[in-house]
Design a protein around this nucleic acid. Structure first.
Length: 565
RNA sequence: UCCCGAGUAGAUCAGUCGGUAGAUCAGCGGACUGUUAAUCCGUGUGUCGUAGGUUCGAGUCCUACCUCGGGAGCCA
C-alpha cells in the first residue's frame, strides 16, 4: 500500500472508536493532504459490496480496507477490526480536481462531527450552504451549515486563497465545498473554526435568494416552504421530528409491539361521513349517475373509497392476532378546519393491545409520552435549547416536569364537579353529559392538577360507537390525556368486545353493522378485551418543540386551499 | 364553517384630520486585520390585496370579493 494511506487523520480514530454505535452511514475525514499528486486511487482489488456493508480485503496483512459499493471507505489497523461493527462507515464522495490541477481525494465531514469530534490541525472537507458571510479587507468569515446540527461551522477565508475575490462575492444560500484545517478559534462564539485552503462554489445563490440573515415571520416562511428548511428553526424542527419518529419505533419495538401498515385507501369511514377525501378514477366532468347521485359501482374499486381517517379498526384486527400492535402513518381529514392544530394530512400513532383494559391503556400512554419527553431532552439537546431560548421560554422546564411526573387520573364525573366549583367563569357551560371544551381541559391540567392528567369514563353519548360501555349504563371506557399548555394530546379507549352490545351501539349511532362485518367478526370468534389510543404525531412535535402552529412542524403542510410544494 | 384582525418596497412595519408614500433590515457600490443578525459611508426600491363607490382629491372613508393570521367548532 502507498504510504499515503497511513496518514489517517488523528482526529478521527480514537474518538470514533469510543463513540456511540453508528446510527447511520456517516461520513468522515480525509487522510490525505490536499493536492497530493501521488494520492492513490481506490485499490481495484477491493471487493465490491452492497451499500452499507463492510468487507475485509485480503490484500493487506496489516490493514483492513473498508469499501461501500465500489468505493473505498477506510483503511483501519488490523487490531481495530474487532471494533468494526461500531465504526460509522465513511464514504468517499469524489476524486476531484483541485484548482491547481492536482488530483486529490477526500472524505466529507459533516459539520456536526467536525464541531463535536474534530481536532485542531486536522484537514477536513465540509460541504454545506452559506448562512452568513462577512467580508473585510483582510479576512472573510463564512458560516456554513449542512443541516447535521443547528450550529454552522465558522470558515475563515484569507486573501491568499486562489479564488478569494469570487468567494467574497458569493451570496447567502450558496452551496460550497470547503477544504481546510481545523483550528481553535481565537475569538469568542465558537471553539473550533475552519481555515479554508480551497473553496469550490458548488451552487451559487444570487441576491434574489428569499432568505435573509434577519429573522423572518413563520407566516412568510410558509410561502417558501422549500427554502425555510435551511433556517435555524425549521432545521431544528425537522431534526427533532426525525429523531422522535425513530424513537417511537424503538419504544414499541422494545415492548414487542408489531408495526402494522394499515391501508391508506379505505372504503369505510368509521367516524362519520363527510370528512373523507374521495379517491376515484371516474371522469369528474361526466360522472355516472344513479338516482341523481354519483354511481361508484363502476369506479376503480367497485365502490366509493377515500383516504383513511384512522387505522384503528384495522389495527384492532391485527391486535386480535398479534396481541400488541401499533400503526404509524399518514391520516387524512377533509374537514374545513382553519386552526393552528389541524391539517388535512397528518401522521398518527395508534397502538392497540389485546387482553388489556383502560387502565393498561393509560399506563402505556403515560410510559410512551414520558419516554419521548426524556428522549428529546437527552438526545436533541442543542435543538431543544434553541427552542427554549427562541420559541418557548419555559419549554425545557415543562418537558422535564412531564418526563418525571406521575400522571394523575380523574373520572369525567369528578372533572365536571371540579369545573363547577372553579372560581372562574367559562365561556361554555359545564354540565354532566356535555363534552369538555378546550378552556375546560386547560383549566383541569394547568390549574387543578398542574400537570398531565387522564380524564376517564366519559358519557357514551359524546364518544364513538366502538368504546366499551361501562356497567353504569351511562359511560364508556374512554380516556383523554391532557397536558399543560396544549390540552388534549392523546385520546383512547377500551374497545367494546361484546358483539351484541357493539351492534346495538352501531344501530344507535346510525352505522350499518353489515358494512363492518369483518370488524364484528373479531367479536364473534375469540373476542378479547382490548384497548388502544391515538396520538397525532404533529401535536407531539408541537408539544415538545414549543411550536404553536401545526403548519410549522410538517414539512409541506396540507390545509384548506394549500397543497403547494 | 362562524367571530375578530390584517393586507403598503425583496423582508418587517409606520403612514396623523382625506391632499399621489417613509423607516429599518436585506440588496447594490465603497471602506475596514477577527467578525458572530459585524460595523461605517453612499445608493435604489412601490399596480398601497382586487373590483366598485363617495369625493375636487382615497393608502386613508363605504361596499363586495380574495388571501393570510388569531380565536371557536370538529378533532389528532
Amino acid at each position: 500500500m502507498p504510504s499515503t494511506w497511513t496518514m489517517m487523520s488523528p482526529a478521527l480514530m480514537p474518538a470514533r472508536c469510543a463513540g456511540p454505535p453508528a446510527t447511520s452511514c456517516r461520513t468522515a475525514m480525509v487522510p490525505s493532504a490536499l493536492g497530493t499528486p501521488s494520492m492513490p486511487t481506490p485499490p481495484k482489488a477491493a471487493p465490491s459490496l452492497e451499500r452499507g456493508r463492510a468487507s475485509r480485503s485480503k490484500s493487506c496483512n496489516r490493514h483492513i480496507i473498508l469499501v461501500m459499493g465500489r468505493q473505498l471507505i477506510r483503511r483501519v489497523p488490523r487490531l481495530s477490526t474487532m471494533l468494526l461493527p461500531r465504526f460509522p462507515l465513511c464514504v468517499i464522495n469524489d476524486a476531484s480536481q483541485s484548482t491547481n490541477g492536482a488530483t486529490y481525494m477526500t472524505l466529507r465531514t459533516k459539520v456536526k462531527e467536525a464541531l463535536s469530534q474534530g481536532r485542531p490541525d486536522s484537514t477536513i472537507l465540509v460541504k454545506g450552504w452559506v448562512r452568513t458571510i462577512r467580508n473585510s479587507k483582510e479576512v472573510t468569515f463564512i458560516s456554513l451549515n449542512d443541516g447535521s446540527c443547528l450550529s454552522g461551522i465558522q470558515v475563515v477565508v484569507e486573501p491568499d486563497l486562489a479564488n478569494y475575490r469570487e468567494i467574497t462575492g458569493i451570496g447567502t444560500g450558496s452551496a460550497l465545498a470547503i477544504t481546510g484545517v481545523l483550528q481553535e478559534s481565537p475569538a469568542a462564539g465558537q471553539a473550533l473554526e475552519l481555515k479554508a485552503s480551497a473553496i469550490e462554489v458548488i451552487g451559487g445563490a444570487d441576491q434574489d435568494y428569499p432568505m435573509q440573515k434577519k429573522r423572518h415571520t413563520f407566516e412568510y416562511l410558509r410561502t417558501i416552504a422549500h427554502l425555510r428548511l435551511r433556517s435555524n428553526t425549521f432545521g431544528a424542527v425537522f431534526r427533532v421530528r426525525s429523531a422522535l419518529a425513530q424513537e417511537v419505533h424503538s419504544f414499541f419495538a422494545e415492548r414487542g409491539f408489531l408495526y402494522v401498515h394499515t391501508p391508506i385507501i379505505t372504503s369505510n369511514d368509521c367516524e362519520g361521513a363527510g370528512e373523507l377525501f374521495r379517491v376515484t378514477t371516474l371522469d369528474m366532468a361526466r360522472p355516472p349517475l344513479k338516482n341523481g347521485a354519483v354511481d361508484f359501482s363502476g369506479d376503480f374499486f367497485g365502490g366509493a373509497t377515500g383516504l383513511t381517517v384512522s387505522g384503528q379498526l384495522e389495527g384492532e384486527l391485527f391486535a386480535q392476532a398479534f396481541s400488541d400492535i401499533y400503526t404509524f402513518g399518514p391520516t387524512f381529514r377533509a374537514e374545513n378546519s382553519n386552526t393552528a392544530r389541524h391539517a388535512a394530512e397528518f401522521w398518527m400513532i395508534e397502538p392497540e393491545m389485546a387482553f388489556a383494559d383502560l387502565s393498561d391503556d393509560a399506563d402505556l400512554a403515560e410510559a410512551f409520552l414520558k419516554r419521548l419527553c426524556r428522549f428529546a431532552l437527552d438526545n436533541c439537546q442543542e435543538d431543544m435549547s434553541f427552542f427554549n431560548a427562541q420559541i418557548d421560554k419555559g419549554l425545557i422546564e415543562r418537558i422535564e416536569g412531564v418526563a418525571d411526573a406521575s400522571f394523575a387520573r380523574m373520572d369525567y364525573g369528578e372533572a365536571i364537579e371540579r369545573l363547577k366549583k372553579a372560581p372562574v367563569s367559562f365561556q361554555f357551560p359545564v354540565e354532566w353529559g356535555l363534552d369538555l371544551q378546550s378552556e375546560h381541559e386547560r383549566y383541569l391540567t394547568e390549574q387543578v392538577v398542574r400537570g398531565p392528567v387522564f380524564i376517564m369514563n366519559y358519557p357514551k353519548e359524546i364518544k364513538a360507537f366502538y368504546m366499551r360501555q361501562n356497567g353504569d349504563g351511562k359511560t364508556v371506557a374512554a380516556m383523554d390525556l391532557l397536558v399543560p399548555k396544549v390540552g388534549e394530546i392523546i385520546g383512547g379507549s377500551q374497545r367494546e368486545e361484546r358483539l351484541e352490545l357493539l351492534e346495538q351501539r352501531m344501530l344507535e349511532t346510525g352505522i350499518a353493522p353489515e358494512s363492518l362485518w369483518w370488524y364484528l367478526d373479531t367479536r364473534r370468534w375469540g373476542s378479547t378485551p382490548h384497548a388502544g389510543f391515538g396520538l397525532g404525531f404533529e401535536r407531539l412535535i408541537m408539544y415538545l418543540t414549543g411550536m404553536e402552529n401545526i403548519r410549522d412542524v410538517i414539512p409541506f403542510p396540507r390545509t384548506p386551499r394549500h397543497a403547494e410544494f
